[in-house]
Design a protein around this nucleic acid. Structure first.
Length: 227
DNA sequence: GTCCTGATGTGCT
DNA sequence: GCACATCAGGACA
């Protein structure tokens, strides 16, 4: 029997099947689909989603190539009663996406410079979302460096504005399905890392809500926005 | 229409 | 630590 031949359970000699490149590609895509977080993940409470997103992988597919990064910092914005949440001002054109179905991207522009990426959570009609504040770059690092005009990997995505610039995320992605093809999160079967909870950044105007520990950072990560 | 504010980042002191 | 860049959204007249 040849080196690559095998015997079947009935004892027949079986020639190995040649696997074509197209089969490998489709198997790879099926594997990626399995890893992609389903919409049901985002239907959990916003706090749970914010915690469980830590250690997951944000993936952006772009004409310049794909980018990915391990999420190391999130913040939860929970409902109309949360004075730090944009939706506390009511349902407007800007906040419409937050009132929509979970698992979609809420991207807004602020300070005249920066885009912010949120993932909508909980049930349709209840405005809540998780702000992705920082990721650890994993792939597509060269194109991130080009967009950020920065060579220091630690500085590429260590803040919500920085990561949107690095991942080419702007308002054109507002409302896109984060369970779709251009932007999604993968669960690469790693345990949720040890993390810390702190008050959210930059929400001093939010009364008693400013002190709620709704910011979650991976303990020991050097890729977070503020230690 | 005007005015004010903001879930930031950077560069300068 | 602080000033400032710059513009969209929301409040208000």
């Amino acid at each position: 029997m040849g080196r690559d031949q095998r015997r079947s359970t009935t004892g027949e000699v079986v020639e190995p099947k040649l696997v074509g490149a197209s089969q490998l590609t489709s198997a790879f895509h099926r594997y990626r689909e399995i890893l992609k977080l389903p919409r049901s993940f985002y239907e959990q409470t916003t706090i749970d989603v914010a915690k469980q997103l830590l250690g997951k992988y944000l993936v952006r597919r772009h004409s310049d190539g794909s980018m990915s990064g391990r999420i190391v910092e999130t913040e939860a914005y929970i409902g109309p009663q949360d004075l730090a949440c944009h939706a506390s001002k009511g349902r407007t054109a800007r906040t419409e996406v937050m009132f929509g179905p979970p698992g979609h991207a809420y991207v807004y522009f602020i300070y005249g410079f920066h885009n912010m990426l949120n993932l909508v959570t909980e049930v349709k009609g209840y405005p809540a979302a998780v702000l992705i504040r920082a990721v650890e770059p994993v792939s597509g690092i060269d194109s991130m460096k080009q967009r950020r005009h920065c060579e220091v990997v630690r500085d590429l995505c260590s803040g919500p504005g920085k990561l949107c610039q690095a991942f080419a995320i702007d308002r054109s992605l507002n409302g896109v399905d984060a369970c779709g093809k251009v932007l999604y999160v993968e669960d690469r079967r790693e345990p949720v890392p040890r993390f810390l909870s702190t008050p959210r950044i930059g929400v001093g105007y939010a009364g008693e809500w400013k002190d709620k520990p709704f910011r979650f950072v991976v303990r020991g990560s050097t890729f977070v926005s503020k230690s």
